[in-house]
Amino acid sequence: MRFLGHSTVRLQMGGRVLLTDPVLTPRIGPLRRVVPGPDASDVRDVDLVLISHLHADHLHLPSLRMLPRDVRVVVPRGAGTWLRGKGVARVEELGIGERRDVDGLRITGVPADHSGHRWGPRLTHGPQSSAMGHLLEADGMRVYVSGDTGLFDGMDDVAAAGPIDLAALPVWGWGPNLGPGHLDPARAADAVARLRPRVAVPVHWGTLALTGLAGMPGPAGARMRRLLVAPPYEFAAAVAAAGHPTDVLVVPPGEPVEPERAR
Rank of each mutant, 00 (worst) to 15 (best):
G181W: 09
V35P: 06
W174C: 11
D139V: 00
P127W: 03
A193F: 02
A188C: 08
V203T: 13
G218E: 02
A238L: 05
R261A: 10
A200E: 06
V145Q: 12
D45R: 07
R226A: 15
L208T: 07
P176C: 10
A214Y: 02
A240S: 12
V71C: 06
P217V: 01
L213A: 10
R198K: 14
D39R: 15
D157P: 00
G116F: 01
H125Q: 11
V102K: 03
P127A: 06
E137F: 05
P68W: 00
A236C: 11
D247S: 15
E137C: 00
N177I: 12
P36G: 13
G87P: 08
G120Y: 11
A56F: 02
G179H: 08
P30T: 09
P252E: 09
E93D: 10
G37P: 01
M155Y: 07
G154E: 09
L249P: 02
G14N: 10
A138D: 13
E137G: 03
P185A: 00
T246P: 07
G120A: 07
V229P: 00
L210A: 12
V91Y: 11
V257M: 13
D47T: 01
P253W: 08
V171I: 01
H6Y: 15
W205Y: 14
I164H: 08
M132S: 05
E260F: 07
P111F: 14
I96Q: 09
T25M: 02
D39H: 14
G104W: 05
V102I: 11
G104I: 00
G175V: 02
D42M: 04
T81E: 13
S146E: 06
L169K: 03
A209M: 05
P163V: 15
H6F: 10
G179D: 14
G87V: 12
V239L: 09
R77C: 00
L228A: 05
S52K: 07
G154P: 14
